[in-house]
């Protein structure tokens, strides 16, 4: 019986292909792209200022509201946070990923990879609130900084208007630390995977041809693992752009895009504006990917 079924499918390869691809394609088209499309549609609707009712007519009015000074500042704030988190993650992740991929003995490698991914086993929310306690004025980090007599520099850092605050737990610096912590695995893994695929003989060949380690890094290792950095940065950048929990828990009262969207579609009842604001990160990501492709980041994939 089983043999007959196998033979039936063996003779109908197209049917097999259809059966395999239909569920994921259906999901992609309807649930994923469909909801994105309805988001796009909604962003071209508007809200009646007086009654608060949804007006289902094409208008660019909602997009106009995005460029109000307050919203512009939200975009700028979120994008610069996403950018700095991405840079910091890449800087921290690369050496570790390089060690894991090229030097760590097999047993240690397994443990390091488990170590990198272990935080993902616990709830994101719990970890964010744990960090809130760590960063609090009476928290362990302040205690430690006190111990090292470094509260002077910390207070100086926190006194800056745009990045500081009353304590680490209520400042953009604290947010930055938590963002980097939360998204770091998403940067390490793609870079490690990319480095894993750079043959050791290429590194040897470069040294053989006279290149010192730094030159080899610049001319061989970095260009060949750059797609991994780009892949990682897509995660860290987009995840930071859309996040609203960390700004809510750690930051000060200044809004990030995610918070703005959350409040517009919830308490504000302005779904079109929320949709329009969401389109912002989508457009930024598309531009980012186009630049990355132009730079040849996907050539080696």
């Amino acid at each position: 019986m089983l043999t007959r079924i196998s033979t039936y499918f063996y003779q109908r390869q197209r049917l097999v292909l259809f059966l395999l691809l239909a569920p994921p394609l259906l999901y992609m088209l309807v649930v994923y792209l469909g909801s994105l499309f309805s988001l796009l549609i909604n962003s071209f609707y508007s809200i009646d200022d007086f009654s608060g009712m949804l007006i289902r007519e094409f208008t660019l009015k909602t997009y106009g509201q995005i460029f109000s000074p307050a919203n512009r500042e939200i975009f700028l704030r979120t994008a610069s946070m996403a950018l700095s988190v991405t840079f910091a993650s890449a800087l921290i992740a690369f050496p570790l990923a390089y060690y894991i991929a090229k030097f760590a003995p097999p047993r240690l490698k397994t443990w390091l990879l488990i170590g990198v991914t272990i935080p993902l086993w616990s709830s994101y929310l719990v970890r964010v609130y744990a960090w809130k306690l760590i960063l609090a004025k009476e928290g362990i980090l302040s205690w430690f900084i006190n111990l090292l007599h470094l509260n002077g520099p910390l207070d100086w850092l926190l006194s800056f208007e745009n990045i500081g605050g009353s304590s680490l737990a209520l400042s953009p610096i604290g947010m930055f630390i938590v963002f980097v912590y939360i998204w770091l695995p998403y940067m390490i893994i793609p870079i490690q995977t990319a480095l894993e695929r750079v043959p050791g003989s290429l590194v040897e060949a470069s040294g053989d041809l006279g290149a010192k380690p730094l030159q080899t890094f610049r001319t061989v290792i970095l260009p060949l693992s750059f797609p991994g950095v780009i892949a990682g940065s897509i995660f860290t950048f987009s995840l930071t752009m859309g996040d609203f929990i960390i700004p809510l828990a750690i930051g000060n009262s200044k809004f990030f895009i995610g918070q703005a969207v959350y409040s517009y579609q919830g308490t504000g009842g302005n779904v079109p504006l929320a949709a329009a604001m969401t389109m912002g990160p989508v457009v930024i990501m598309i531009v980012y990917l186009l630049i990355a492709r132009k730079l040849g980041a996907f050539d080696a994939l």
């Binding site: 003989s201 290429l202 041809l209």
Partner: peptide, 17 residues
């Protein structure tokens, strides 16, 4: 990189980029 010898590798090790 400080030795005046060069190598032809078994897998050629050409830089793909």
């Amino acid at each position: 990189y400080e030795r005046d010898v060069n190598t032809v590798f078994q897998d050629y090790a050409l830089f793909p980029h």
